[in-house]
Computed example of a mutant assay.
Amino acid sequence: MTAHGQDRSASPDGAVRAAKDQVRARILAARRALPAQERAARAEAIAAHAVALADGVSGPVCSYLPFGTEPGSPALVEGLVAAGHDVLLPVVPDGAGPMDWAPWTSDADTAPTRIGIREPTGRRLGPGAIAQAALVLLPALAVDRAGTRLGRGRGHYDRSLPLAAPGALLVAVVDDDELVAALPAEPHDRRVAAALLPRAGVTWLRNRN
C-alpha cells in the first residue's frame, strides 16, 4: 500500500510486475519438481547445442554458470572452452549497476557469492567487456515468441545488455516448455533473438535481426 492507501499492484506497472511474479513462481516450482536425471540429460543437450551455435563465432562468448535449478550445467562453459572459445562470466555487483565480467579458466578458479552463485575469481574486465562478445548466452525463467525474456527480477541483465555490441546475438537458455506464446513485459526489458532449448535446440524468435 502507498502512503495514500493505494495498492501499487493496481497501477499498470504494478500489474505487470505482479504478473511476472506469478509466472516466476510457477516456473520455479516446476523446475524444483524436475527429476535430477532428467535435469542432467537436458543440461547435456544444452551444452551440445551451445557449442554448435558458437561454431564460427569470433571473439569471446559471454555465458554463465547455472545457479540452482537453472537449465544447463558447468559443462555448458567447459564445452565452449574445449571448442576453443574464450568465455566471460558475469560478476554481480553489490549494488545497482551493470555486471562486471571475468574470464573463466576452470571451476577451481570460481567461488560462491553470498547468494550461492559461483563467480570467477580472476581479473575483472569491467562492465564494458560484454561489448567484445558476438554471442551472449543468458539465463532466463522463460522467453516468449516475440523475444521477451523473463529473469529473476533483480535487473542485472537489464542494466548490462545495453552495453552489448549492436550486432551481438542474445540467446536465452530455457527448457522447452519455458518458451511460451507471450509474457508480461515492461519498457526496459531487452528482447533476445533466440531461445536455446534442450530438445528443440536453437529456436529463432520474431525479434531476430
Rank of each mutant, 00 (worst) to 15 (best):
117 I>T: 11
50 A>L: 08
48 A>M: 02
112 P>L: 07
112 P>T: 09
89 L>Y: 01
38 E>N: 01
79 G>M: 13
53 L>G: 10
33 A>T: 02
39 R>V: 01
89 L>T: 10
131 A>T: 08
97 G>K: 09
59 G>Y: 04
120 P>L: 03
67 F>M: 10
34 L>W: 01
95 G>V: 10
52 A>Q: 12
103 P>R: 15
87 V>W: 08
86 D>R: 15
94 D>S: 14
64 Y>A: 02
53 L>T: 02
85 H>W: 07
118 R>A: 06
91 V>Y: 03
29 A>P: 00
90 P>M: 05
79 G>C: 13
127 P>K: 14
129 A>H: 07
84 G>M: 04
51 V>H: 11
85 H>E: 06
52 A>W: 00
60 P>T: 11
122 G>T: 12
47 A>W: 05
73 S>V: 12
123 R>T: 13
95 G>R: 13
111 A>P: 00
93 P>Y: 06
29 A>H: 04
90 P>C: 11
94 D>Y: 02
88 L>V: 07
33 A>V: 03
66 P>T: 09
142 A>I: 13
82 A>L: 06
52 A>C: 08
103 P>K: 11
35 P>R: 14
104 W>F: 15
96 A>F: 12
71 P>C: 12
73 S>D: 15
98 P>A: 15
90 P>K: 03
63 S>N: 08
62 C>M: 04
71 P>T: 09
26 R>H: 10
43 A>W: 06
66 P>H: 03
102 A>Y: 00
136 V>N: 02
48 A>V: 05
121 T>I: 15
121 T>D: 00
67 F>G: 00
25 A>Q: 14
88 L>A: 01
54 A>W: 13
126 G>L: 11
49 H>C: 05
27 I>S: 03
